[in-house]
Design a protein around this nucleic acid. Structure first.
Lengths: 138, 138, 138, 138
DNA sequence: GTGGTCTAGACCACG
DNA sequence: GTGGTCTAGACCACC
């Protein structure tokens, strides 16, 4: 029984394989997926998410390339031991970059700064609550 | 009086026409491009940016559809007076979509929710400061 | 179960891509095209209608922007669930614009206001009847 | 002093010259512009409407071609004596055609039939009131 | 297989 | 001069 759930948003502008990569990378970085954790097989995950198996293959391949996962021939994919660590500068750079894109998309929608901040805070709270619940069960 | 310049980076994963749309839309939203401003003609801008004219046409057409620009036959494109094109539901939908993408990019960077919220608030403040300064000059 | 066919008249003063947009939009609004319906692929439709594929791309893209269709990468275009994309103000603006054009075409025909109103009412009734019949079959 | 005013909607999808043609044809057909009436000169009208003189030239030329106006060399343009008369069938055909286009544009805007009928009735009333006031002054 | 973007160039309509 | 449409064909990304 796996307590970690990937959720994909169909019809989003970001392709499915990238959503998977992002979420697994995230979960590994935050510890939701501990080192050595056995990822669901390509087949199983494809069925679960109702997507093409090739999409999963592509996502796992990219995660291996990034060092997030390790492929053990014939056994499957496992979360790598050595976690990716970013320097403070790199992390800040990435945050600012994501912010740029976010602001660009949202600025013209005529929401007040308060509304936007509130929405961001809400989402972050949801996310952390979800992660905590996964950790508690683990 | 500051000239408005569009800058594109070819080879980016965001298509050229979208880079143009985003920049013009933002500039119009903040008032950097005032209503009535005559945009550079399709052919001129295409030459300036070293892209095909059809790419500019596509970008301008999308901006017209969003109510940011107006097309006057034989005269060119002009910045439109601000109006609310999208329904509240649609705007919320778009905010949530942008949020999705932002959160997924940012969550695994190990910033606290407070830090992220603060960064967002700061950026929004910058944006509104810019808007106010444009208004003051008018 | 009635097949849905798009019919275009080349050489009309309304461009091909707009003829497609109008027909699909109306069919979706009346329920003739149910939500989830898989539209013919760009290439197939281009072949059927004997027009360039880019013309279809343009039409479908516009329908996506209006919320009528959804694009699923690698799978095709599907009729979207109905939602309110435009603000009340925008919808009113569009109604007034259509009215302008209609009135100018019709006023000089020397029909009385009553006759014209009656004709409009009749057509609208036909439309709603069609909508109801589609719902009833569902 | 001319009591007949052409009003153009800039930014409409229908070109300016066509708006002029439609309105003059209409006014001539309803009698608002009596036979023999001297149209404003190309220059004057261009100034009044704030459009290019060539646009007026084009509109007048089309009206002459249709038999609505007559050009008297060196004196200007005059409303033709023999008014265009359509057969009942032709008038009905044109009404239905205009209706088609109107319904197409409006159907997906989610206005109730009542709202639309009311809007149409209102516009027709405005138009007739305007025509009556012009006639009264003549 | 699907859609998405971009280029190049033609032709038309509008002002 | 301006924008608007359409064609033809290339190349890419996604599934």
């Amino acid at each position: 029984m796996s307590e970690f759930r990937i959720e994909i948003t169909t019809g989003s502008r970001t392709p499915i394989y990238r959503q998977i990569v992002d979420q697994v990378r995230l979960a590994a970085a935050t510890g939701a997926l501990p080192a050595g954790y056995a990822m669901p097989s390509v087949r199983i995950l494809a069925e679960e998410l109702l997507v093409n198996a090739n999409t999963i293959v592509k996502a796992y391949a990219e995660l291996v390339r990034e060092g997030v996962l390790e492929s053990h021939q014939g056994k499957g994919f496992f979360v790598a031991a050595k976690r990716q660590v970013y320097s403070r500068a790199e992390r800040t750079r990435r945050l600012q970059q994501a912010l740029d894109s976010f602001i660009h998309q949202v600025a013209f929608l005529d929401f007040s700064a308060d509304e936007i901040c509130k929405a961001v805070a809400e989402r972050l709270q949801d996310l952390h609550a979800q992660l905590d619940s996964v950790r508690a069960r683990a």
